[in-house]
């Protein structure tokens, strides 16, 4: 599904290399987790995959089902099936959450040559999915993420993911700022979306999220590279011993 080969990237304004050759292959239906110390390039990887400005790819490739991601506009990547759940979801005053969701869903459908959803159908689907994420009507009416609590923002991300039904979901520190109950709710939302045709890349600092969203593969990222990959036990090792041992072992 997602193939990343030797991906290298600089921060545009500061002339600073962040990714120094990332290799990652995620098969359909798999859940991969990336852990790593602060500043290792985890979030940068998610931004570069989704097409945020401010980075320059200096080498390597990233493809989604064989299609070159790096050549596309962010919206084209989204239509191709890529989704990023933001670490810090953006507040958009003046744009209603519902309007935002409908615009996004229909823009993607249009880009894929599908019929737009009727207002009625859309409303029915949103209500149903919102309910399972405990998102009430008021949250749907309010401007996007404005005045939302940390938990509400993250649930709103998962609602968007559920509505857009992407193939490849990247969750960038979705557990940050969440209490235990909110994390469970978010994890349940993610697990409900797990399917054979859908893959996940879960970026996190803590093993705790991975108790709820069970990964197939865990990667450790440090200094712009993936330095070690393994099974779920790797996350436990990090939880117990920190990164020091692993960093030393690789060095």
């Amino acid at each position: 599904m997602l193939e990343i080969k030797g991906l290298m990237a600089d921060l545009q304004d500061e002339d600073k290399t962040i990714l120094k050759g990332v290799d990652l292959s995620i098969e359909a239906g798999q859940v991969h987790a990336i852990m790593g110390p602060n500043g290792s390039g985890k979030s940068t990887l998610s931004y570069i995959l989704s097409g945020k400005d401010g980075y320059e790819v200096t080498g390597g490739s990233a493809t989604l089902d064989g299609v070159d991601l790096l050549d596309m506009e962010p919206e084209e990547r989204a239509a191709a099936g890529l989704f990023l759940a933001f670490q810090y979801p953006v507040e958009i005053p003046g744009v209603g959450n519902m309007t935002f969701l409908r615009t996004a869903v229909n823009a993607q459908r249009k880009a894929r040559g599908e019929e737009e959803l009727s207002a009625g159908d859309f409303l029915r689907v949103v209500r149903e999915k919102a309910k399972s994420l405990k998102i009430d009507a008021d949250m749907l009416k309010r401007p996007v993420n404005v005045g939302f609590s940390g938990g509400e923002k993250k649930r709103n991300e998962i609602l968007q993911m559920a509505m857009l039904e992407p193939k490849m979901c990247i969750l960038d520190e979705t557990d940050s700022g969440l209490d235990v109950d909110a994390m469970k709710l978010v994890a349940e939302g993610v697990n409900a979306l797990r399917s054979e045709g859908r893959s996940f890349l879960v970026i996190t600092h803590y093993q705790r999220l991975l108790d709820h969203i069970k990964p197939d593969v865990v990667h450790i990222m440090a200094n712009g590279r993936i330095i070690k990959s393994g099974g779920p036990e790797l996350a436990l090792e990090v939880e117990n011993n920190g990164y020091a041992d692993i960093l030393e072992e690789v060095a």
Partner: peptide
Amino acid sequence: DEDALFYLQSRGVSRQAG
């Protein structure tokens, strides 16, 4: 707001429509 615009784009909304 470029952050808001990127957020919209990442959801499939074109830069123009965003």
